[in-house]
C-alpha cells in the first residue's frame, strides 16, 4: 500500500427514486500504482469490514474495452486524462491531500440504479433500432474478399467501431445528447459496402429511437469528442447528419 491521503466526496443514492447526496470519505494508504477503481475497492473493503453499505459502481473488464465503468470525476467523464476510461485512470494523476468529487453519469436517459451505477439500456435500444446489417447465419455467405474495401474506408470505419458505448459523450454533453454514440454506429456501417444497402433506413430509425429515449439535441459544443475514451471524432456526427439528411430528402 502507498501513503497518499485523499478526501473523496462520493454520490450516494439508494435507488432511482431516492434523492441522493454527496458524502465524505477520507481514504489513506493510496498507492500511485492503483487504478481509480482499485482505490474504490480498498475503500469498499474498509466499508464492509465496518458493517456499512459499500459504494455501488459499474465495472467489468477493467482494461478499457467493455464500456461498463462510468464515473464523473472532478467534473469530467472518466476523470482527468485523454483517451482513457475510468478503469484506466491511475492514482498517479492525483496528489496527496487532493479532494476528489465522484458522481454518476447524469442524463435523463440514464437513470441511476444505485450510487454510481446507471441504467444505460437506452443505448441497446438505439442499437436494436438499426445498428446492424440484416444478414442471418444461414451459411449462405459471400467470400469476405469478394468486395474489396479501400483501406482508407476500412480504417475510418474502424475508428468509428472502437466506440464502447460507455455513455461518456452523453454524460459530458450539456444537452445530454447521444449523437456521438449514434454517429459512431451509423458511420461504421455506412462506410462499409456491407452496410450501405440499409443506410437510409438505419439513419432514420436510430435517430428516431435516440429522440424517443429522451436524449437531447446536438448543438456542436464538441465536448463529447474531448471526453470520449476512444477519441471518436466529431466528423462522425457530420457524417450522421449527412446520412440523415439524405435519407430524409429521398424518403418515399
Amino acid at each position: 500500500m502507498g501513503n497518499m491521503k485523499l478526501n473523496l466526496k462520493i454520490w450516494r443514492q439508494a435507488g432511482p427514486n431516492d434523492k441522493g447526496q454527496m458524502k465524505d470519505y477520507p481514504v489513506s494508504n493510496v498507492s500511485e500504482d492503483m487504478s481509480f477503481l482499485e482505490m474504490l475497492d480498498v475503500l469498499n473493503d474498509d466499508i464492509v469490514r465496518k458493517g456499512d453499505d459499500p459504494i455501488a459502481f459499474d465495472h467489468d473488464c477493467r482494461e478499457g474495452i467493455c464500456g461498463s465503468c462510468s464515473l464523473f470525476i472532478n467534473g469530467e467523464a472518466h476523470g482527468p486524462g485523454k483517451g482513457i476510461t475510468t478503469c484506466q485512470l491511475h492514482m498517479r494523476r492525483f496528489k496527496d491531500g487532493d479532494t476528489i468529487h465522484v458522481e454518476p453519469w447524469r442524463a435523463q436517459a440514464f437513470p441511476v440504479i444505485k450510487d454510481l451505477a446507471t441504467n444505460r439500456s437506452a443505448f441497446d435500444r438505439i442499437q436494436a433500432a438499426g445498428g446492424f446489417v440484416s444478414i442471418n447465419t444461414s451459411g449462405n455467405l459471400v467470400d469476405g474478399n469478394a468486395v474489396p474495401i479501400p483501406k482508407d474506408d476500412a480504417d475510418k470505419a474502424f475508428d468509428a467501431a472502437t466506440c464502447i458505448g460507455c455513455g461518456a459523450c452523453v454524460a459530458t454533453c450539456p444537452n445530454g445528447s447521444a449523437m456521438l454514440f449514434t454517429a459512431a454506429k451509423v458511420s461504421q456501417l455506412s462506410l462499409l459496402p456491407q452496410g450501405k444497402p440499409e443506410r437510409k433506413r438505419r439513419a432514420l430509425a436510430m435517430v428516431e429511437q435516440m429522440d424517443k429515449e429522451g436524449f437531447g439535441n446536438c448543438s456542436n459544443t464538441g465536448a463529447c469528442e474531448i471526453e470520449c475514451p476512444k477519441n471518436i471524432s466529431l466528423e462522425h456526427i457530420a457524417r450522421l447528419n449527412r446520412e440523415y439528411l439524405a435519407a430524409t430528402v429521398t424518403k418515399e
Binding site: 446489417v133 467470400d143 469476405g144 456501417l189
Partner: peptide, 18 residues
C-alpha cells in the same frame, strides 16, 4: 465471411483484401 458481412471492420491491405 460471416463477420465481414455483419460489418466487422477487419484489417485490409491496400489492395482492399483482408
Amino acid at each position: 465471411d460471416q463477420c465481414v458481412a455483419q460489418g466487422v471492420p477487419f484489417a485490409r491491405d491496400y489492395g482492399g483484401l483482408l
